[in-house]
Design a protein around this nucleic acid. Structure first.
Lengths: 160, 160
DNA sequence: TTGCTTGCAAATGATTTGCACTGCT
DNA sequence: AGCAGTGCAAATCATTTGCAAGCAA
């Protein structure tokens, strides 16, 4: 009761994902172990950034230290991205080669993050503007992050 | 040797700043004490986000607990903003009513942040795009944050 | 059998908090 | 007086690390 109920195309994407991750890890003499595969699977299924406790709740048997260590390995390998915004826990999501470029809605009440996408032309303008500003001060740009902070529907409702 | 060498206009701005902060704090039955004034002054002078150690280096006599507590008070009062990006320390800067809307260059090597400004029309497009995405999921937007991550000139040079 | 992994327990370190004292108002 | 602010020391708590044992090439 795990890899059933998935449409054919999705199953293929999963395979591709894991193969690609395997390859990335191999480049660093790291192995794609069961624990690491679990992490990638959970993050892939979630479709939004998760904290370590959230990840653990999906997979009961995840020793914290190993989870943190593996998230670190995966981050160094460029497989996942660590996001920190004021709040107790860091959030983790699949990195860009493995998911589309996107941004986040960040709830300042509960911390939850949700993925959103912007039009390609807006992305272009933003990127150009940032690149220009970076050039002015000799800054070497790698990637941008753009988040909208506010209240998620649930928290907004809870505030009556 | 403290408030000299400042152009006349700047001196006035400082006064306005402190008066405004005083007012904001008063709204919360908080006093604008010497310690709090120091924090605001240092952040205002810096013109870029600072960590607590950085703030302390400007003002030797700043007990950590008091500094953290006052930064918290100032944050609640809407005077300053706390920024956290992967890295050991949180960064603090004056909040938006007290400084122009801006974004940051974030060095992923040393953590330093630098302020940058984008064209007004790009800001508009971004805001509109984000607002649209937020509406779709019933998210109540407050403000956006946009950072460019990469290597600052100094760190880039250090990597030879 | 060499070297990456794992998981437990212990350490780290930024930030927070308890408490007694100071100082406005 | 009465309550906000201060600073020291101690507590918190997410994350990291040491180490001995497990596992894959």
């Amino acid at each position: 009761m795990d890899q059933t109920a998935e449409p054919e195309s999705s199953r293929t994407k999963q395979q591709e994902l894991h193969e690609a991750v395997d390859w990335h890890l191999a480049l660093q003499d790291s192995r794609y172990t069961k624990g690491r595969r679990r992490l990638v699977q959970v993050l892939s299924d979630a479709g939004r950034p998760l904290t370590l406790p959230e990840i653990a709740s999906h997979r009961a048997d995840l020793p914290q230290s190993s989870a943190y260590r593996n998230l670190d390995v995966l981050e160094r390998a460029g497989v996942i991205r660590r996001i920190t915004h004021s709040g107790d826990h860091a959030y983790f999501e699949l990195a860009e080669p493995f998911v589309d470029h996107h941004h986040h809605l960040v709830c300042i009440e509960c911390g939850q993050m949700e993925d959103i996408h912007l039009d390609e032309d807006v992305e272009q303008l933003v990127d150009t503007g940032l690149r220009r500003a970076a050039e002015r001060v000799g800054f070497t740009p790698l990637h941008h992050s753009l988040d909208l902070h506010g209240y998620c529907a649930e928290c907004e409702a809870d505030m009556e």
